[in-house]
Write a protein that binds this DNA or RNA. Structure first.
Length: 294
DNA sequence: CTGGGGATGGGGCCC
DNA sequence: TGGGCCCCATCCCCA
């Protein structure tokens, strides 16, 4: 039973995970990992030993478990299968076999032990692999691009791929241990990745659009989306406002409409105190220089 | 320009 | 595991 402090709304906050026992704002889409192109990774983490790369793939739920007690074959150098990597710069690359614990950001991973190409699985984590920058400095996206440029004569080859490794069947590897599998599932149609297969399947429907309207042929990802669309053909409006009796085909639109009956609306301008029924209206209001954004 | 309605997308929750 | 529903967000259009 989670006890929420008085000022913490359970709908919008959740207990922090791991060792961080704070209340954190619950993101609306906490399952989906957004593309990291606009984010600057924490390159301080990159100073860890190379083994940190592999260790970062998993997160112990009970932090009291000594790492050495986790019987993970991937953590044991002797038992770890080797993977084929390509290292080099310019036009010169050499293929070598090495331990996954020795993989660096500057390695273009080619093949996993299961024979599957790894490159496509490397865009799923905001933390990049360890960089091998000659100046020892950070590896911002701009820096990475510079390293890829041939004008950086002699600079190491740096793969475009930034992300985590998706090792084969980690769930089996960790059966019996209190270790959470942090593997992500990649969408084959776009760059999104998900922490559960169900979430991925749900997302894939947004690409395949299996629900088609028999009247106009428009396709939707989910049956209830199609249902709502069909109401636009039938004119059915099952949701009615108890203030004015006006009907709506969509509950969300009714909710937005109810705001128009409220004197104090949901979104308040922190500058002038004026309230708005929609966040978009508040944004427009603030963009209009009424109240400069701090 | 502002405010409101219509339509739709998408992740989460519950069963 | 999947369907149905909830909720939030967003875009477009119109008065």
């Amino acid at each position: 039973m989670v006890m929420y402090p008085e000022n913490v709304h359970p709908d919008y906050y959740c207990p922090g995970l791991g060792t961080h026992r704070h209340w954190q704002r619950m993101p609306r889409s906490f399952l989906v990992k957004k593309p990291c192109s606009h984010r600057i990774p924490n390159y301080g983490q990159l100073l860890e030993a190379q083994a940190g790369l592999v260790l970062s793939l998993y997160q112990t739920e009970d932090t009291s478990i000594p790492r050495q007690d986790i019987t993970d074959p991937w953590q044991t150098r002797e038992a770890t299968p080797q993977i084929q990597v390509e290292r080099g710069h310019g036009d010169h690359f050499t293929k070598t076999l090495l331990n996954p614990l020795d993989v660096r950001m500057s390695d273009a991973l080619l093949v996993l032990p299961n024979g599957l190409p790894l490159k496509d699985n490397m865009n799923n984590l905001n933390m990049p692999l360890r960089n091998r920058a000659p100046d020892g400095g950070g590896s911002t996206p701009g820096h990475k691009a510079a390293c890829n440029s041939s004008s950086q004569g002699g600079s190491p080859y740096v793969t475009e791929s930034v992300g985590r490794l998706d090792f084969p069947k980690p769930d089996r590897l960790f059966s019996g241990n209190k270790v959470r599998n942090c593997r992500y599932f990649n969408c084959p149609h776009c760059s999104k990745s998900y922490s559960s297969l169900g979430a991925l399947k749900m997302h894939i429907r947004t690409h395949t659009l299996p629900c088609a309207c028999r009247i106009c042929g428009k396709a939707f990802s989910r049956p209830w989306l199609l249902q709502g669309h069909i109401r636009t053909h039938t004119g059915e409006k099952p949701f009615s406002c108890y203030h004015c009796g006006r009907g709506f085909a969509d509950r969300s639109n009714l909710r937005a409409h109810l705001q128009t009956h409220s004197e104090v609306k949901r979104y308040r301008c922190p500058g002038c105190g004026k309230t708005f029924s929609r966040i978009s209206l508040l944004t427009k209001h603030r963009d209009g220089c009424c109240c400069p954004v701090s």
